[in-house]
Computed example of a mutant assay.
Amino acid sequence: MNFVEQSLGINATIFAIAAFVVWFAGTKLSGYVDIYADRTGLGQAFSGALILGGATSLPELATTLTASYSGAAQLAGTNLLGGVVMQIAVLALIDAFILRGKPLTLFSPRPSLLMIGVMLIGMIALASAAVSSGELLSYAGIGAWPVLLFAAYVSSLWVIYRYEGHPRWEPTGEIAQPPESARDLKDAHHEKYSAVSTKEIAGLFALASLAVLVGGFFVAKTGEAIAEQTGIGQNFVGATLVALATSLPEVSTTYSAVRFGAYSMAAANILGTNSLEIALFLPAEIAYRDGAIFDALEPTTGFIASLGIVVTSLYLWGILERRDKAVLGMGVDSFCVLVVYALGLSVYYTL
């Protein structure tokens, strides 16, 4: 089906319906992963980074493969790097509207979150270097940069898994507890699924993930068509509209995790998803048949990567400092993230 041949109104309608499917299925994912993490003892940070982050990255995978295969390398690249910035902003918005008066990072003192964030910054820096230099070496149509980024992602998972089991330090001072309402919601959720086996939980998780993947495919195709029909361009549409729609699973799962009081899982979901987004440059490279994907990206794409490093650093600062103060009902770190995001997009639009 060629979506460009459809009217803008039809594409916008399909885009909205697909985005709703992605949102609805995403709200189910964090609940299933929270139960699975408790039953298996995997840990919230690792489960959030690997399992939940992997599932919520399915729309990005669908978008990336679809856009790359159709030759829209700019849309694929800016969606991945723009999604990194967008999803950190998601944390800030949830901090502002769900946890009124208390910073989200006050409730997330796990050292493993810092490890995930540090690994993510390193991966974004590598992606920025790849955008700046272009592809240096390729074999059988596969460039060295995407392979290096995927290897860095796999290595980071191994480091995070080992570190969460044996952290080298623990935070001191008072450890803030989730509000009673969050604990009550979580208890009610676990009681609801108490008679459901772990295998059945895994099956429900797989079904929700499939719905997210299918919705993500239609978001990608209609987003590409809307970019062409409106004349806004693949760069800005990829970094904003498509990145927002494919970030809906992260929004819904993070929202659900925070409501349950699973704050570390919420943060790990976003940081883990962002790490996987950088690794998705490898499937993008495989799907893109017009050369090396990093050679097709414009230098301005590096600006979005730099924004990703800045906003991730701001959240790591928040986790380290764990300030109790709030600005406009959100943490100081979240406020800074939203300011940087708004200013950064304004600058990017002019590039």
Rank of each mutant, 00 (worst) to 15 (best):
T222I: 13
T198E: 11
G216N: 04
V219F: 02
A211M: 14
K221W: 09
F218P: 07
G215K: 10
A202P: 01
A220E: 10
A225F: 08
K192G: 05
L210D: 00
A195H: 13
A227W: 08
I201N: 11
I226P: 11
K192M: 12
A206K: 00
L213M: 12
T198W: 09
L213I: 02
L213Y: 12
A227G: 13
A206Q: 03
V214C: 02
I201T: 13
L210S: 06
K192W: 12
G216S: 02
G223Q: 03
G223H: 03
L207Y: 11
K192R: 15
L204D: 12
V219G: 07
A225W: 11
K221Y: 07
T198N: 11
L207P: 00
L207K: 06
Y193S: 04
V212W: 02
F218Q: 05
S209A: 15
L210N: 00
F218I: 10
L204W: 14
F217P: 04
T198A: 13
K199D: 07
V214A: 09
T222K: 09
T222C: 11
F217Y: 15
S209L: 09
K199F: 07
Y193N: 08
A225N: 12
S197C: 11
V212R: 06
E224A: 14
K192D: 07
A195N: 13
L213S: 03
A206E: 00
V219E: 05
K199R: 10
L207V: 12
L204C: 06
V219W: 01
Y193A: 07
L210P: 00
S197A: 08
K199W: 07
L207I: 10
F217Q: 10
E200N: 08
Y193T: 08
L204V: 00
Y193K: 03
S197R: 04
A208T: 00
S194G: 01
L207E: 05
L207C: 05
I201S: 12
E200L: 13
A206P: 01
V214H: 05
V196M: 14
L204A: 04
A195E: 15
G203M: 11
A220G: 06
K221Q: 13
G223S: 06
F217L: 14
T198F: 07
K221A: 15
G203D: 00
Y193L: 15
A225M: 08
V214Q: 03
F217I: 09
K199G: 11
A211H: 04
S194W: 05
Y193C: 02
E200W: 04
F218G: 04
S209R: 06
A202H: 10
A227M: 05
V214L: 12
G216Q: 01
